[in-house]
Design a binder for these strands. Structure first.
Lengths: 221, 221
DNA sequence: TCATGGTTGTGACTTTGGTCACAGACTTCT
DNA sequence: AGAAGTCTGTGACCAAAGTCACAACCATGA
């Protein structure tokens, strides 16, 4: 059940929900549940069934694959205004999750029960188009990721990661390794090389990008 | 324009197209174009816009990513009754292709213009659900592929590939390497090892799986 | 301040996969 | 039968990434 403040923010983040037919609008407000979850919470995991569709209002979610030996790889991250396409996939395919979702920061979201989500999809074309284009986007991301993992060396992928973040970057080498699907030592080593080449400057949990151009060239040669 | 024979076969392969409202049914029959393309044809490629939505009637399509150095990696393959979700993605996201599609055998398909596809999606719920579940399935496949590429050694991936095909397998080592995103020599070497372990028997363009159990265990330890 | 725990640096080593070069075998076509 | 092209086997070598072990460093709070 959403209060009117929450509903305002929902519509602001997700404008394609405006102009709903009255009945749907009622149902949306009545059925959605406002949730606050702290950073680090596992929101869903592999082999679990889906319990609903989340509209992210603030914070962000890392969607990752974890290997049995402790290594992990980030598939993508979800930000406010986007949606967890993996969840859509589960709901629409009546299947289970194939990855893990973790709150990267404190997260506030409006959770929609499956039935309401299906009603939205079926009766509101703007929302449907929104879901479709998200599918399309994520699909492209995943394919990009696959080629990166299959064909690109780690220094290039690391460079790509670095330029994709606003400098200065606050994260540990381990966290970067987890995004790339690699290990801490290798990332440390590569970062060191980048520093020696004058591309970045390293500090504790901090990376300053000095030469964006050179990094970009490395990232996309 | 479909003749009634082709339409029969289309409906047989794609039963969710039955029960269309008359107007849509007309449009489908009028707008769809029957195409025959020989093995090896590149049906679409990266950075091209989509020209339509294909219903595969016979044959199959390999969807691959090609690296600049000549290596390639198969993302998935499309068989009759399925659809090229990548194309849906393009059409629905108004974007371009992110991979290449090649006819693995001679292919017969009914090509739907974008506008007709959109009309189908928007007005026929069974078809829409079909597209959604395909999205869901492919998404799962891609995620599976990502973890395989990122975390599994090549012998395991090769074993998986071998058990997924009906024995005897007729293909060259190069073709297997292209499915895995690796190179011929490595695949030859691994196959040799498998043979020495009594898991398979090798012949020219032929692989007989001897010990499925052991291979499966390798594939999924 | 001292202990603790998280973060980083680093060297030695191993494994895996890729590259190169070339030989031998088989197929097909003339 | 001979030539050309394709497919396979293989050894030597290389590079990238991962593993292990350990030291040093920093921040925090007891």
């Amino acid at each position: 059940m959403l209060d009117s403040g929450a509903e305002q923010r929902l519509l602001q983040r997700y404008p394609m929900l405006r102009g709903l037919p009255a009945a749907l609008h009622e149902e949306l407000a009545a059925q959605a549940a406002l949730l606050n979850v702290p950073q680090g919470t596992v929101l869903f995991d592999e082999l679990q069934p889906c319990r609903g569709f989340p509209f992210l209002l603030s914070g962000s979610i890392r969607v990752i694959k974890a290997a049995p030996n402790g290594r992990e790889l980030q598939l993508y991250s979800v930000n406010p205004g986007e949606s967890c396409i993996l969840t859509s996939s589960c709901l629409l395919g009546h299947a289970q999750y194939h990855a893990r979702g973790v709150a990267a920061e404190d997260v506030e979201m409006a959770m929609l029960p499956p039935a309401t989500f299906m009603a939205l999809i079926n009766s509101h074309e703007p929302f449907r188009n929104y879901v479709f284009s998200l599918f399309s986007e994520r699909m492209a991301d995943l394919m990009q990721l696959i080629t990166a993992v299959a064909f690109q060396k780690l220094d290039r992928r690391l460079a790509t990661l670095l330029v994709s973040k606003p400098s200065p970057i606050h994260s540990t080498h381990q966290a970067l390794a987890d995004e790339l699907g690699s290990v801490r030592e290798i990332v440390s080593r590569l970062l060191k090389q980048f520093e020696e080449q004058g591309l970045i400057r390293l500090g504790r949990e901090q990376i300053n990008v000095i030469d964006v151009n050179a990094l970009s060239k490395l990232s996309n040669p």
